[in-house]
């Protein structure tokens, strides 16, 4: 799998993303600067976490308008796999590649902790190496991860099987009490209609190493590689 990682000036989880992609695919991803107007020919594009342009206006709002994101949108529409994590998810919603928006956490505080996610279905390009209903532990680290969309959109996402992950407890129970940031219907990650774009707030790239938070994020990257081979 050939992959690219998009770099904004304030991106700060690029090395974590690179490590995860390299571990799964055996190939180092190419780095693409935000000011570029050409994407290299790749099978998969990752938009990593961080603070793209400082996030002073609205998280991801300026990132979505950078030259490279126009190319990423074209590639996504042409069927290339696109994966946005954290700030990357925020940018994908701002570009319109994914519906909804990420608001301030309900607590109004930054949250960094390991959390449990329920894999809603393994019938996607991003989750095939998990079991449906599996509970995985991965960290979150965000200030604006509170997913919001109108009721119709939420119903459609659920109806079309496009909710990829939900916040749950260790037993897989999804409830208000397990929704750490106030997200509607405990949504932690969603897919686009075609199923080739995933955005999620938690960081599977920080759960690929037994010494650093476990390895339950690795199957996500393996799934991507498998879907493309």
């Amino acid at each position: 799998m050939k992959s690219a990682v998009i770099l904004f000036p304030g991106t700060n989880r690029e090395n974590d993303a690179i490590a995860a992609l390299e571990q799964a695919s055996g190939v180092k991803p190419q780095l693409v600067w935000h000011g570029e107007t050409d994407l290299p020919k790749v099978d998969m594009i990752m938009v990593p976490g961080g603070f793209s342009y400082g996030d002073y206006l609205r998280c991801g709002a300026m990132g979505a308008n950078s030259p490279i994101m126009r190319e990423v949108a074209k590639a996504a529409n042409a069927g290339v796999t696109v994966f946005g994590v954290c700030n990357g998810f925020q940018i994908l919603t701002e570009t319109g590649l994914l519906p909804g928006a990420l608001m301030h956490n309900a607590s109004l505080k930054f949250i960094c902790k390991r959390t449990q996610l329920k894999v809603e279905s393994n019938a996607t390009n991003f989750t095939s190496a998990y079991e449906t209903g599996q509970v995985i532990t991965v960290p979150v680290a965000h200030n604006e991860g509170n997913y919001f969309a109108d009721t119709d959109t939420l119903d459609r996402l659920e109806g079309e099987g496009r909710v990829a992950f939900r916040y749950c407890d260790e037993d897989g129970v999804v409830s208000d009490a397990t929704c750490l940031n106030g997200s509607q219907r405990n949504i932690a990650g969603i897919l686009n209609e075609k199923g080739n774009v995933l955005g999620m707030m938690p960081h599977p790239e920080n759960a690929i190493d037994p010494l650093h938070g476990g390895v339950e994020g690795s199957p996500l990257f393996t799934s991507i590689v498998n879907s493309l081979s």
Partner: peptide
């Protein structure tokens, strides 16, 4: 306190 700090970024916090 420390859940408000990103203590995991860089992927090397053992």
């Amino acid at each position: 306190i420390w859940e408000q700090y990103d203590h995991l970024v860089m992927g090397n916090t053992i």
